[in-house]
Computed example of a mutant assay.
Amino acid sequence: MNHPIVDTDTLTHPAVRLERVTKDFGGGVLGLDDVTAEFRTGAITVLLGLSGSGKSTLLRHLNGLHRPTSGSVSVLGQDVASLRGRPLRTLRREIAVIFQHFNLIGPMSVLENVCTGRLGSLVGPRLSLMMYPESVRRQALEKLDRVGLADRAYQRADTLSGGQQQRVAIARALMQNPKILLADEPVASLDPVSAREVMSLIQEISSENQLTVISSLHQVQLAIDFADRIVGLRSGRIVLDQATEGLYAEEASEIYTSVSGMALAGHGGR
């Protein structure tokens, strides 16, 4: 397999930097509370925490869906909050997103779903598969082959299993040729075997393309097995920041306790 030429100077700088970021939704609700963190280029980082801990809020700051109440968010060297219009759209083409529920168009073919990953760089609507340029259709087939689904290209997307649909969503994301992949609970809807297959695929693609991956998860063991680093969030604050190298299964419960606050609750803590 031919690997891309990697700009080693780029790898010395973080792909993402948050500096004292607070997101105040009003009414005393803080989505993020004074968060400072860096995310290394080409690494896989898992955001771990309970629902409402701030994982999705953090991800939405990285492509400008949320803007910080205070602090700064830098992505690929750009201050996200300062971007509007075309510069913001240009940055978003560098940032692909996959979701828990796949967001595929069920009656549409698998191949056409993957082609939609290029809509941000095409002019005008695309009402059928054949309205996409041949080069786009060819690239979509290549991405489907990479995720192991080239033989399902002309099948309806809603006839696939959950794991297969998430692989289609990954292929669609790769159509952007992104530098960053944001994955918001990408395996929460999958059975354990499919979840491991999807995380393994993400890990392989990250390594091949020096793709920076930031993913929210609930499953501690998956985070340990597939991420380079775990960032634990609780009530909008970072309470854990740890490399996964050398971590073992017996430590998983301790990690989960640290991000869930169960230890504090068990001792009557605040």
Rank of each mutant, 00 (worst) to 15 (best):
residue 171 A to Q: 11
residue 166 Q to H: 05
residue 2 N to G: 03
residue 59 L to E: 13
residue 66 H to W: 06
residue 22 T to V: 09
residue 67 R to G: 01
residue 148 G to I: 06
residue 207 S to W: 04
residue 87 P to D: 10
residue 106 G to L: 05
residue 175 M to I: 03
residue 31 G to Q: 12
residue 173 A to G: 05
residue 63 N to I: 02
residue 257 T to A: 11
residue 35 V to H: 12
residue 246 G to M: 05
residue 65 L to N: 07
residue 44 I to H: 03
residue 51 S to I: 05
residue 236 G to Y: 10
residue 80 V to R: 14
residue 215 S to K: 04
residue 228 D to P: 00
residue 116 T to D: 01
residue 57 T to H: 10
residue 147 V to P: 03
residue 235 S to P: 00
residue 115 C to D: 13
residue 30 L to E: 08
residue 267 H to P: 00
residue 93 R to W: 07
residue 226 F to P: 01
residue 114 V to G: 05
residue 8 T to V: 09
residue 112 E to I: 07
residue 101 H to M: 05
residue 26 G to L: 10
residue 158 D to V: 02
residue 101 H to W: 03
residue 19 E to D: 15
residue 49 G to P: 02
residue 40 R to H: 09
residue 99 F to A: 07
residue 246 G to W: 02
residue 219 Q to K: 08
residue 11 L to R: 15
residue 255 I to V: 04
residue 20 R to N: 13
residue 95 I to H: 14
residue 109 S to P: 01
residue 86 R to P: 00
residue 202 I to W: 10
residue 66 H to V: 03
residue 243 A to D: 11
residue 212 T to D: 02
residue 193 V to D: 09
residue 258 S to F: 00
residue 193 V to G: 04
residue 128 S to D: 11
residue 262 M to H: 08
residue 244 T to H: 09
residue 250 E to F: 01
residue 123 V to W: 15
residue 178 P to H: 14
residue 247 L to Y: 07
residue 109 S to G: 08
residue 81 A to H: 11
residue 27 G to K: 13
residue 194 S to P: 01
residue 94 E to L: 04
residue 89 R to Y: 04
residue 90 T to K: 15
residue 157 A to C: 01
residue 168 V to T: 13
residue 234 R to E: 10
residue 9 D to Q: 15
residue 206 S to E: 04
residue 29 V to T: 14
residue 52 G to Q: 12
residue 41 T to R: 15
residue 119 L to K: 14
residue 218 H to Y: 04
residue 81 A to E: 12
residue 105 I to Y: 12
residue 256 Y to C: 00
residue 253 S to K: 09
residue 50 L to Y: 11
residue 67 R to V: 05
residue 269 G to P: 02
residue 216 S to G: 04
residue 243 A to T: 09
residue 66 H to P: 00
residue 181 L to Q: 10
residue 253 S to V: 09
residue 47 L to H: 10
residue 260 S to T: 14
residue 161 S to F: 07
residue 212 T to A: 05
residue 249 A to V: 07
residue 266 G to F: 02
residue 239 V to C: 11
residue 158 D to Q: 07
residue 217 L to T: 10
residue 4 P to F: 01
residue 24 D to Q: 09
residue 133 P to H: 11
residue 207 S to T: 10
residue 12 T to S: 08
residue 232 G to L: 04
residue 268 G to D: 08
residue 103 N to E: 08
residue 31 G to W: 13
residue 57 T to A: 13
residue 144 L to A: 06
residue 46 V to W: 03
residue 59 L to P: 05
residue 152 R to M: 06
residue 67 R to T: 11
residue 132 Y to Q: 11
residue 107 P to S: 14
residue 126 R to K: 15
residue 71 G to I: 06
residue 226 F to V: 05
residue 48 L to T: 13
residue 227 A to W: 03
residue 26 G to V: 10
residue 256 Y to K: 03
residue 263 A to F: 01
residue 18 L to M: 11
residue 117 G to A: 06
residue 251 E to A: 13
residue 243 A to E: 13
residue 246 G to C: 03
residue 71 G to M: 06
residue 7 D to K: 13
residue 235 S to E: 15
residue 223 A to Y: 05
residue 187 V to A: 08
residue 62 L to F: 12
residue 179 K to F: 00
residue 210 Q to F: 00
residue 95 I to E: 14
residue 121 S to C: 03
residue 1 M to T: 14
residue 140 A to V: 04
residue 102 F to I: 06
residue 93 R to S: 07
residue 211 L to R: 13
residue 54 G to A: 09
